[in-house]
Write a protein that binds this DNA or RNA. Structure first.
Length: 172
DNA sequence: GCCAACGTTGGC
DNA sequence: GCCAACGTTGGC
């Protein structure tokens, strides 16, 4: 079994949206990057993935999903009305793929990016690499376990608050 | 809103 | 095949 991390902007689709979805299942559509697509295609039923909120305040790992249907054509790619429309895609040449994922658990508390960065055992994670933008990435079993364990632990003492320092006022 | 990092596009 | 221009991502 392999482990993954998938990103979504909560304004677009949050883990709460997934929790409300029929069968707590959704098609993970809209991936338009070849490397990320290839990772989607490598997913197998039963694989587990960390659900991560990007462009969020704070950005955070928020839960776990499992793959319940392996890669199939992303129909939104050839829908001219879809924001992910790709003129290269058609039913005969789908180009892009999606999988179905089902919600396994919403973490008891979100694991903010700051806190992930503070973990030595996660130092090698793709997510934490500078400039990393891939929306679908593999994670090791160890990284997965670390995140799962952290999410169920009390926040470590001495962890800095996740809020940013107030901006200096201009002028004067 | 800013901007660094990265992927894609297209002229040559 | 090179690479500049452009678009997107996503933390801050």
């Amino acid at each position: 079994m392999r482990h993954w991390l998938i990103k979504s902007e909560p304004e677009t689709f949050s883990i709460s949206d997934l929790a409300r979805a029929p069968k707590r299942t959704t098609s993970w559509d809209g991936v338009r990057n070849y490397q990320a697509r290839n990772f989607l295609r490598a997913m197998r039923c039963g694989d587990l993935a960390i659900f991560y909120h990007s462009n969020a305040d704070p950005p955070a790992a928020v839960g776990i999903v499992t793959v319940v249907r392996e890669a199939f054509p992303d129909v939104s790619a050839w829908d001219p009305g879809s924001p992910g429309h790709d003129p290269k895609a058609s039913p005969a040449n789908p180009v892009w793929s999606m999988v179905d994922v089902q919600l396994m658990e919403v973490f008891p508390r979100p694991l903010a990016l700051d806190e992930l960065r503070g973990q030595k055992s996660l130092a090698g994670m793709e997510l934490l690499r500078r400039g990393s933008r891939l929306s679908v990435t593999p994670v090791t079993a160890t990284e997965f376990r670390t995140i799962h364990t952290l999410a169920h632990a009390r926040p470590a003492a001495g962890v800095a608050p996740t809020s940013r320092p107030a901006k200096k006022s201009r002028g004067n």
